[in-house]
Computed example of a mutant assay.
Amino acid sequence: MKYRLKRLADQVIVITGASSGIGLATAREAARQGARLVLACRDKERLDAVAEELRAAGGQATAVQADVGRREDHERLLQTALDTYGAVDTWINNAGVSIYGRIEDVPLEDQRKLFDTNYWGVVYGSIVSVAHLRKHGGALINVGSEVSDRAVPLQGAYSASKHAVKGFTDALRMELETEGVPVSVTLVKPASIATRFTANARNYMDVEPRLPPPVYAPEVAARAILYAAEHPRRDIYVGGAAKAIGHFGQRMPRLADRMANWLVKHQRTGIPARERHDGLETPGDGEAPVSQGRVHRHSAYTHMATRGRGPLLAAACAVLLVGAALGAAHAARRP
């Protein structure tokens, strides 16, 4: 299939979850490169501030308050893009939220609400955008996770939703290819990213959650997403850790299971759980403190992966896979 993707400077891009984290970093970089943006999230005040920031720096940005769990909001998002800029070239389904806690401790209604955002938000956005993109081509980019390939304890519902996003995205891609539809469909799978992810997650643990290392800056994910907006890619892992965990979980699943103790330990802080205004049903708390530890500003793996450096990439994957296996074996020996 031949895709004709425009330069970012010539594109109209829709981004959900655009007021913080990966979405905000992507919006800033896309605006810097001249793209015209339609930004969406539930928090109108924060979103308006982002749009104003981008316009003040010389960019073009329109803010649309929207809940991705409602199909009609996606329809309104598309219509706003068409009314404002006359087209959509790339649609980025980025909005997401998580829940920390043992699966048995998380109410089913909360798990269903998480799926409304993480899974149905992607489904609605994909269906609405593809109906438009199939007419003239473009890119659909769904933001999954390293847990699209390998589930983690204490985030069971989140892992399940990202597995579902992967299955949906892969099936949609194949169906469009069989029809010859010129829409590039990419699944982006980030490792831990230094955002307000933990602060906005609902928490059923007795302590505050944290991200397991290594943690990457949101700009690393933004660069990968915008690369996919210009270059057709099936999937992109953000961070060598994401690639290693995905391959490790697929090739040595039982050994990967034995990383559970390490993963539980590194998702729990020593800070007692606080009262929080999480983002499961309403916009999250933009003021709560977040401790990320060391944050990696670049990923050599992702840089190579998006530049087609095959031999170097294969060598890097081998090193990462061996390192992950040794780490799992060490974790398995711990009580």
Rank of each mutant, 00 (worst) to 15 (best):
M1T: 06
R7Q: 15
L8K: 06
A9W: 00
T16I: 06
S20Q: 08
G21D: 12
A25Y: 00
T26I: 02
R28Q: 07
R28L: 02
R32I: 02
Q33C: 05
G34E: 06
L39S: 04
E45P: 00
E45G: 03
D48H: 04
Q60K: 06
V64D: 06
D67W: 11
V68P: 05
E72M: 11
H74E: 08
H74P: 03
T84Y: 03
N93K: 01
N93H: 04
S98W: 00
R102I: 08
I103P: 00
E104I: 06
D105W: 06
R112I: 09
L114P: 09
F115M: 14
F115H: 11
T117F: 09
T117K: 05
G125D: 09
S129Q: 08
G137N: 01
G138I: 00
A139L: 01
I141L: 07
N142P: 06
V143L: 13
S145D: 05
S145H: 03
S148Y: 06
S148P: 08
D149K: 03
R150L: 10
R150N: 11
V165S: 05
F168A: 10
L172M: 15
M174Y: 10
L176I: 04
E177D: 10
G180N: 09
P182C: 00
V183G: 01
P190V: 05
A191E: 12
A191Q: 03
S192H: 09
A199P: 13
N200K: 07
A201Y: 02
R202N: 07
D206H: 14
V207P: 11
V207C: 12
P209C: 07
R210H: 04
P214E: 07
V215N: 02
Y216C: 08
Y227S: 10
R233M: 12
R234T: 15
A242R: 02
A244L: 10
A244G: 15
I245S: 11
G246I: 08
H247F: 13
H247C: 10
F248W: 13
R251A: 13
M252S: 13
P253M: 06
D257H: 14
D257V: 02
M259L: 15
M259I: 08
L263R: 12
T269R: 05
G270R: 11
R274P: 14
R276G: 13
R276I: 10
T282N: 13
P283D: 09
G284Q: 08
G284V: 09
G286Y: 11
A288G: 14
P289A: 10
Q292L: 15
A300S: 11
A300F: 15
H303Q: 14
M304A: 15
A305C: 07
G308E: 11
A315V: 14
A316M: 15
C317V: 12
A318Q: 12
L320T: 07
A324V: 07
L326P: 14
G327L: 13
A328V: 10
A329D: 14
A331P: 12
